[in-house]
Simulated scan of single mutants.
Amino acid sequence: MSAPWSGHGRSPNGHDEGEVSAVTPPGNAGAVDVVVNTTGGSATAAAGFTYVAGAGI
């Protein structure tokens, strides 16, 4: 299973049926689609993850 964010493939951890967790790569503030690919096909959550701007230094 892989889940590409902004073109960066990541291998998430499957914990239980219907549950996936992953570490996202750095990204610009805003919503991005989340695509999960498996051998059985893929599913997309449009705007499924939102990056927020960090605190200014």
Rank of each mutant, 00 (worst) to 15 (best):
M1V: 12
M1K: 08
M1C: 08
A3G: 01
A3L: 10
A3C: 10
A3E: 07
A3S: 06
P4D: 08
W5Y: 07
W5F: 09
S6Q: 14
H8L: 09
H8N: 08
G9K: 01
G9H: 00
R10L: 12
R10C: 09
S11N: 13
S11R: 13
S11Y: 11
P12H: 05
P12V: 08
N13Q: 13
N13E: 15
N13W: 13
N13C: 11
N13G: 10
G14I: 01
G14Y: 13
G14A: 09
G14Q: 11
D16S: 15
D16N: 11
D16V: 07
E17K: 10
E17Y: 14
G18P: 02
E19M: 13
E19N: 07
V20E: 00
V20M: 09
V20W: 09
V20L: 15
S21A: 11
A22V: 14
A22W: 14
V23L: 09
V23T: 10
V23W: 10
V23Y: 10
T24A: 04
P25L: 06
P26K: 02
N28H: 14
A29E: 05
A29P: 01
A29I: 05
A31Y: 14
A31Q: 12
A31I: 04
A31F: 13
V32S: 05
D33A: 02
V34W: 04
V34I: 04
V34F: 01
V34N: 00
V35G: 03
V35P: 01
V36I: 09
V36N: 04
N37D: 00
T38E: 08
T38R: 02
T38W: 12
T39K: 00
T39L: 09
G41E: 06
S42Y: 05
A43E: 14
A43R: 14
T44A: 12
T44P: 11
T44F: 14
T44W: 11
T44D: 11
T44E: 15
A45L: 15
A46R: 13
A46C: 08
A46V: 14
A46M: 08
A47P: 03
G48E: 03
G48S: 00
G48N: 01
F49C: 03
Y51M: 06
Y51G: 01
Y51L: 01
V52R: 10
V52Q: 11
V52L: 12
A53H: 05
A55W: 04
A55T: 07
G56T: 15
G56L: 15
G56M: 10
I57H: 06
I57D: 03
I57P: 02
I57K: 05
